[in-house]
Computed example of a mutant assay.
Amino acid sequence: MTAGPLAPGPVQGHAGPAFEVAVVSEKENRQQPPAASGKTRADDRAGYAAAMERVRLVIAWYNKAIHHERRSTSPDRSRLETLIAERQACVEDQKALETADADEVAQVATAYGARFRHLARAENGS
């Protein structure tokens, strides 16, 4: 169940213009997403960090909910399976952020910010 905002779409192959690729370490690549036109590297890093934090918060919410469901005196197996599947989709989105462009990063940050607020409100009965 990959319902995350970075679910892959159709791939269109074409021989585009040649371009030079900078070689960076895998660690540096994960920590510094590519710069988008009109934005600085600092803007990209801040947006990437914000998106990663929002995804992390949602994953943490699911971890807590899974823990509580498992520790329940009468765990709901269906709810537990749903929570685990939702958490896995979040983990996949988190991994996809490593190669996302600035627009995708912004989309993930917005979607996961709203998702966390929704989950927190539901948890508090609001």
Rank of each mutant, 00 (worst) to 15 (best):
Y112W: 04
E92G: 09
R54D: 10
R30S: 11
R56F: 11
F116A: 05
R77G: 08
V91P: 01
A100F: 01
L119V: 02
G47L: 12
A51S: 00
A120V: 06
A51Y: 00
A122H: 06
L83R: 03
A85I: 03
G113Q: 12
R54Q: 15
T2A: 11
A35W: 04
A109W: 00
Q31A: 15
R70P: 02
E20G: 06
P33L: 06
N63C: 00
G16M: 08
G9L: 10
N124I: 06
A114F: 04
R115T: 08
A18E: 14
D44V: 15
K39R: 11
A65F: 05
G9F: 05
A35T: 15
E53V: 07
R117K: 13
H118T: 12
G4H: 09
R87Y: 01
E104Q: 15
A120T: 08
F116D: 00
R41P: 12
A106N: 07
Q107T: 13
N63D: 15
L80A: 04
Q12P: 05
A50Q: 09
A85M: 06
I84A: 11
V58A: 08
H14N: 07
T82N: 12
P8S: 10
R54T: 11
L6N: 01
R77Q: 14
V108Y: 03
T73F: 11
P33Y: 04
R79V: 09
V91G: 07
E92N: 11
R45T: 10
G113R: 07
N63V: 01
A51C: 01
R45D: 13
R54H: 15
A35G: 05
P5C: 04
V55R: 00
P75F: 02
C90V: 03
K64E: 14
Q31K: 10
R54W: 03
T110R: 14
I59A: 05
P17G: 11
Y62E: 05
R79P: 00
T99D: 10
A120L: 11
W61M: 02
R56P: 05
A96H: 08
S72D: 15
R45E: 14
L57G: 00
A85C: 01
T40N: 02
Q32Y: 12
F19A: 13
A96K: 13
R45M: 14
M52I: 06
R117M: 09
L6D: 01
R115Y: 04
V11Y: 08
G125R: 00
D44K: 04
G16S: 11
I66C: 04
N124F: 10
M1R: 11
C90G: 14
Q31W: 03
V105D: 00
G16N: 06
H68G: 10
E98Y: 08
A3L: 13
S78G: 06
A106T: 07
A3N: 13
F19Y: 14
R117T: 14
G4K: 05
A120C: 03
A100D: 03
D103M: 08
F116I: 01
A120N: 13
R77H: 12
T99M: 07
A7H: 11
P8E: 12
R79H: 06
F116E: 04
T2C: 09
G47N: 14
P75D: 00
A106D: 10
G38E: 00
